[in-house]
Amino acid sequence: MKKVIRIGAVIVALVVGIYVWQNFLKTAPSMKRLDAEYQVTAIELSAEYEESEDTADAKYRNKIIELTGELESIETPEGSLPVLNLKTEGFGMVKCTMESDLSSTEIDQLEINSTVSIRGECYGLNLFDIQVGRSIIINN
């Protein structure tokens, strides 16, 4: 009888543990392990948002996308994650906030006006710029 109680207690502890881990401790998987739903250039993405924010939001917002574009600038704000800004044909940019910090070597390897490909989560349009978060560079 004691054995049954012990096994029951272990099963309950496991179930509670899995529930706590799934709901309170588990973080989203790294972008490296995710597949993109869309492949698009920064110029195409910007043009689609310019044509209709609602339609573009329905297609891209909260989705994983692979973006290719010309690197306009790199921001490394203090206390925040680095941002790669990709050129569009309009006033806005596609601002890709990195998933984690970039080393100074990685930043040095990025050349302004060069073409970069990025995978990240599209957050949508914010007045001028399209924000992409959790970004990683997939080739440079």
């Binding site: 704000p77 206390g79 925040s80 906030t97 957050y123 949508g124 914010n126 007045l127 924000q131 978060g133």
Partner: peptide, 27 residues
């Protein structure tokens, strides 16, 4: 939490201001 990706337009002639931020940009 911080976000440094907030957009805003300020029109001093009309005394108007518009601010917009995407919540997911909070770090």
């Amino acid at each position: 939490a911080h976000s440094n990706k907030v957009s805003s337009i300020l029109d001093l002639k009309k005394n108007e201001v518009v601010v917009s931020m995407l919540i997911k940009t909070f770090e």
